[in-house]
Nucleic acid binder design. Structure first.
Lengths: 198, 198
DNA sequence: CGCGTTATTGACCACATGGCTAATAACACT
DNA sequence: AGTGTTATTAGCCATGTGGTCAATAACGCG
């Protein structure tokens, strides 16, 4: 196997391991076993354990930013773009991915290294949503009075959805989505039910 | 020291340790050192490590539910009660407490045991906010059309505030609070700026 | 083919952890 | 004071961890 592929395979294994067990419980040997190598090899690709975890975190963040940028570069109109953005975090968005980000958020509270990456990702999301809203305003599709505040609201509700979908609670997912849509529509100044039509 | 006090001291130490390092990195010896005892003693109060962590988790959850009930039982009018709730970080403590909860939520993704407690807490919060809104409606202080949805929104924004305050990002805390208030006021059908007056 | 470089293995080390237990200190109660 | 119970300590053990390194296999290239 090519070094690049091996490195990628190790990172993939690390991401899966983190999603399953969490950062703190992710051990070199488990990652190595999942990647089909011995743990001594990890040192050949990453100077130490911390670097491996940081690289795995960074990889996930970059992939997410890339996905987001793809939406941005697409020819979709602002309304459709906003739908795309809110959808990945919607029903069926992948509980495994959520688990990874919860781990990352919790880890950001203890590790200074990861907080930086976390902030970069956070900012990327904010800029993306804000851009979509402003372009929608310019195109006359939206009539949003507080683009910055609305952008934060959209992200906040998405994150909270992911959070509450995992930690459970009596509020069903469908209701969470309904609230998110209703509030977003009102903030954007578009007709109720517009977002639901997909 | 009395056994009860010792047990409480150990649990306090465990909670602090979890908030600082996370569940997985919380070791018997560190907890013992923080509590001023030797690690052998922990075995005398808790059968094993997992029980200690579970007890610490349960303790935090019960304390938070108690605080919630205090607000409920207070003589404050619904508006004042809602102010308490929407205050930054809510009434359950500051950023430190939320670091603990992020850890707990992440842990709930891996451990089945903790998910139940997590859900109970989640439901308690929802019922609290919903109750305040409905009593406000009955008293004519609020004119909220979707109490259930609004209750979830209030909790969601509060959690997201804590989350983004920890993971950083370009959105300043003051703006997050402003959005939360504005949206809450609109959902409750009360005049803008009402919540800000404290 | 031969040779230098890189990838990969397996074994080893020092260390921290959770669990356990015998010995001791503190205590409660008569 | 005496005694049985509980609280507390110190130390041991098996295990798993991250890090390191020499030996070897695979590879690229002249």
């Amino acid at each position: 196997m090519q070094p690049d592929q091996r490195r990628a395979a190790i990172l993939d294994a690390a991401v899966e391991e983190v999603a399953e067990r969490g950062f703190a419980r992710t051990t070199s040997r488990h990652v190595a076993a999942r990647a089909g190598v011995t743990h001594g090899l990890l040192h050949h690709y990453f100077p130490d354990h911390q670097s491996l975890l940081a690289a795995a975190f960074e990889k996930m963040a970059l992939e997410e930013i890339d996905e987001v940028n793809e939406i941005l570069a697409s020819d979709l109109d602002p309304l459709a773009q906003l739908r795309e953005i809110t959808e990945p975090y919607g029903p069926g968005g992948g509980a495994e991915a959520y688990r990874f980000w919860f781990e990352a958020w919790a880890e950001a509270g203890h590790s200074v290294t990861m907080r930086a990456t976390s902030e970069r990702l956070s900012d990327a999301w904010y800029e993306l949503v804000l851009g979509v809203i402003e372009r929608g305003n310019a195109a006359g599709v939206f009539r949003c009075e507080h683009p910055g505040e609305t952008a934060w609201m959209v992200i906040a509700l998405s994150d909270a959805y992911a959070l509450h979908a995992q930690t459970g609670g009596g509020v069903p997912a469908t209701e969470m989505v309904r609230v998110t849509w209703r509030l977003t529509e009102r903030e954007l100044g578009i007709a109720p039910g517009t977002l639901a039509r997909s």
